[in-house]
Design a protein around this nucleic acid. Sequence first.
RNA 1: GGUCGGUUAGCUCAGUUGGUUAGAGCGUACGGCUUACAUCCGUAAGGUCGCAGGUUCGAAUCCUGCACCGACCA
Length: 820
Amino acid sequence: MQPLPKKYKFNEIEQKWQQIWEDMGIYHFNWNDTTKPVFSIDTPPPYPSGEFHMGNILNWTYFDMLARYKRMRGFNVLFPQGWDCHGLSIEVQVEKMHKIRKHDIPPDKFRSLCEQLIEKYIALMKESILKLGCSIDWTTEYRTMDSDYWRRTQLSFILLHKKGYMYQGKHPVNWCPRCETAIADAEVDYEKRKSSLSYIRFPLKNSSKYLIIATSRPEFIPACVAVEVNPKDERFSKYIGKEIVVPIVNRTVKIIADKAVDPDFGTGVVMICTFGDKEDVKTVMKHKLPIIRIITDDGKINKKGGKYSGLKINQARIAIVEDLSKEGLLEKEEKLSHEVGVCDRCKTHIEILEVKQWFMKTRILTNDVIKTANEVVWYPEYMKTRLIDWAKSLDWDWVISRQRVFATPIPVWYCKDCNQTIVAEEKWVPIDPKLTDPLIEKCPKCGSKAFVPEKDVFDTWMDSSITCAVHAGWPDRADWKRLFPADVHPSGIDIIRTWAYYLMVRHLALFNQTPYKSCLINGMVLGSDGRKMSKSLKNYVAAPDVLGKYGSDATRQWAAAGGATGSDIPFRWPDVEYGRRFLVKLWNVSKFANRLLQDFAPNKKSQLELQILDKWVLSKLANLTQKVTQAMENSQFNVALEEIRTFTWHVLCDSYVEAVKDRLYRPEIHGESQKEAAQHTLFNVLYKVLKFLCPIIPHLTEEIYQAMFADFKKHKSLSLASWPQSIPNFIDEEIENNGDMIIALITEVRREKAEKRLPLNAPIKTLTIYTKDSRTTEIFKEGAFDISGTCKVENLKVLAKKGRGKPVTDYPEVQFKTEL
RNA sequence: GGUCGGUUAGCUCAGUUGGUUAGAGCGUACGGCUUACAUCCGUAAGGUCGCAGGUUCGAAUCCUGCACCGACCA
């Protein structure tokens, strides 16, 4: 047993073990081991934003606690790590950083700028993940921007195309005019914006009368295809079916009725333009109205906008309102504050445009998604509603093509002559159609030898929604189904509708199987003020600051204990501070045990004479084992940690250690066998406490284990030891009650000393305990030397008769008297 | 606007299937440097569990309504 130094330096210890663990390779998934059951974690590859925030800390601590716990439970654990590189956000940053637009330089050059920035960001984030001490298998590390990952994304597309899930079609999509790309529903944010509501006169055909429509988008007047009222609105029912003239363009459209119109909004008369918003799309489809597109990809008015063509949307709006005003058709303008859809990457007001895009048929899977979601185990359970509600709410199929650069290319060409679509064959991938022609001689339909590449790329979720299969080894390993479905998919509450959903539809479509057996949801990290953590609210705390100041073990305790799984968790410095204090406590009790166990041989099989408090603490430990194991099984990390901390601090340190000190210090008085019993108990209890804490506090527990236990237990690392077994036979309720009674008496004596303003080590000449019967007397006699040792009693008397002493709280039948 | 969650000690939060006197940390008061630990130990004060009803022998826990806070989403 190595002695422990007086102080422990977390930064040295943590760094040391992180390096050793990595060198030992103990966290690698063992592909050759078929004896152990496997446990696979579908680690979400993070988007390399360059900043590891407290939310990431929470996530990775969850993943890591789970991985370490499962390893100790005897599983061969797969804990992979990838990086979800592609996406608009990085492109926007590159554009800003280099003051360019995506078209200004060749695509491969643009890509490489993105790659450089991503690599920089990955390095920063990886540093924090390493510092957190995650037991990741780094041999699995991958980047979705690597061509080897393209291969998987493209292959999955090809397979789904064969199965009929992928199609190209013209359909209205959310369009970001700044990024010049289609975006999915999941990428649309909503923000409150100030705008104005224009009241405009629309003359009725062949009449001097007019209706006043209210619109927030007057610039869309050239695209107006109908005017709409509520059928129950008596003010306007007589006009339904009549014709009305659209000002500016002087086109005649019909007045139609639809109950979607809110009679209380504006004037109760609205214009339908193709397309102002999603509601317009529904109306246009329902009433089979013509489609007039007046917006270009980059957010300008096109030729159909007549004299306004070439103007930006905002400019056109001003011009049109001005013209209306000149013609006397503008009734009034009102200020309006309303929610508008914006691009979640650049916050530009999105438009709805009808564009040719690639789609995946996701809605035909909705029933399967619901059924599967119900079969998945959710932590916490109520989270599954979010996935189901989202799946049900989807109006459109998933648009998977993007008009961007930094993403996986869509492996498709078109015949230059007959426009035949040529989808790559499985063997061709990875392939960039912009750089390579299809690997066929001629067009299978018309024989032409000229091809046009698909310039669009995939939505980044196309990459990341196959992680469950990819982590398992698909498509390269024959035995990938061993690790599929993933045992757990951990996910933030905010990405259930994207990650959890897309994973579900992709894998259901590809393999007709759920991608994950369980879904562990973490909440959002809030600022100390209980509001969402953000820099603008000035409640932002950077993760590297916390790790730098307190180290990983303390920070991880905040993550574990912060709140129930799935609930939002505020960041609280005092929680981290408490975590650190617990580490100091654990260190000190280990130091104490270390000193008093120097002459202890744990493997010596001598007859042990366990005393009542030894049995008491062992029974409490057995109880703890049950509670902690159950909590860990249910991913209730907060419950597990609280139980262990309370036991360690109060049961082990405050009660047990204090009570047995005298036995350990003075074997010449109490006997060598009494000392051995305490040593044995202390050794075993501390070892198990370290094991319980290992998944949450991996570094310090390892440090203590290596110094004190490794010689006897022979594991290379504590994280390779097995989780303590829960043995109900070790729980002895009677022993616990008896021990509790002894502890209550000790507390009572302390209270008396406190009341008399005496120090705790003030000697007591005689302590007399009066009990009601001989059984109780026996109990106190058994615990006599622990009581007198703790309370510094010189002469302890236990009498089976009523005395006039002070009763012990909770045990009125026990009384005591002290003589100083 | 929709969905979900929350409201328990001065503060931040636990409280599994209803069951003795509702717990913890921080903070507060008082005492103590006791051969692990003053980053500690001991003792104490502090709660009609958001409000109003209901079910029950019994409710922080189940049901209904209301109020407020928040997250996610449209």
